[in-house]
Design a binder for these strands. Sequence first.
DNA 1: TTTGATTGCGCAATGG
DNA 2: ACCATTGCGCAATCAA
Lengths: 148, 148
Amino acid sequence: MSKSSPASSAPGVNGLSAIHSQAHASGLQQVPQLVPAGPGGGGKAAPPSKQSKKSSPMDRNSDEYRQRRERNNMAVKKSRLKSKQKAQDTLQRVNQLKEENERLEAKIKLLTKELSVLKDLFLEHAHNLADNVQPISAENSHAENAGQ
Amino acid sequence: MSKSSPASSAPGVNGLSAIHSQAHASGLQQVPQLVPAGPGGGGKAAPPSKQSKKSSPMDRNSDEYRQRRERNNMAVKKSRLKSKQKAQDTLQRVNQLKEENERLEAKIKLLTKELSVLKDLFLEHAHNLADNVQPISAENSHAENAGQ
DNA sequence: TTTGATTGCGCAATGG
DNA sequence: ACCATTGCGCAATCAA
């Protein structure tokens, strides 16, 4: 993360048109072609002897450079593939979850119904029992007298 | 900062040390203002009649070119943003579904338990009834008198 | 035909 | 030093 992009143009409002042709730092490659003399600017009188790779813009013709680029390109490709795959998996996961959800909901519906039936049966029985227990006053309709 | 070498001359960059990969020119190269013959080989002949499309090399220094590029860059940015957002939404959706799933499962568990309890009660009653109905060879089993 | 939207790709900076 | 990620620009292609 992080976003330290060089300068680049600022899209924005645009007036866009004034600064073009500017070499974009990143996207455009214009290759300096050769490594200037190093940061020191002027001179560097021959430092020790080992300074070959590093501390220099690294020239793009270098074999090493090309190699690194190629490797990176592969890595990028791989990474992107992976990323895409993951996204797809996530999407699949959504469908999977949706299905399971439906399944669960159906089950709930079923259970609810079963429960309802059973409860009704219970009520019926309870009434029957009540009738048995209190058949005395036959006319008394409702009113649950509990106890005996 | 930086240099402004608009375009004036071709980079001179060299080009490619070797004919690597395809002619696809990707981000590199500022190619002289000339148009290649087309993507490699492809040879998709142009449709009959109607001349090819852009026969013009379309110079990259062109004002119009820069404008088009800029527009496309914006579009690309936008598109990618959107894409990223969508992916994020999908991820969120997954979590949402997962939550609901848990909720449903909990409910199922509850209902199942309730059902189980009711069934047991039911069996008990059934036994009681049986005892009442068939006390004949009843050795006084275990039954619990319905009492209430 | 034009124009925005997408997509594959390479480069470079940066994170690990 | 190396690979993995990520933002970015370019160009080809799609879709209106």
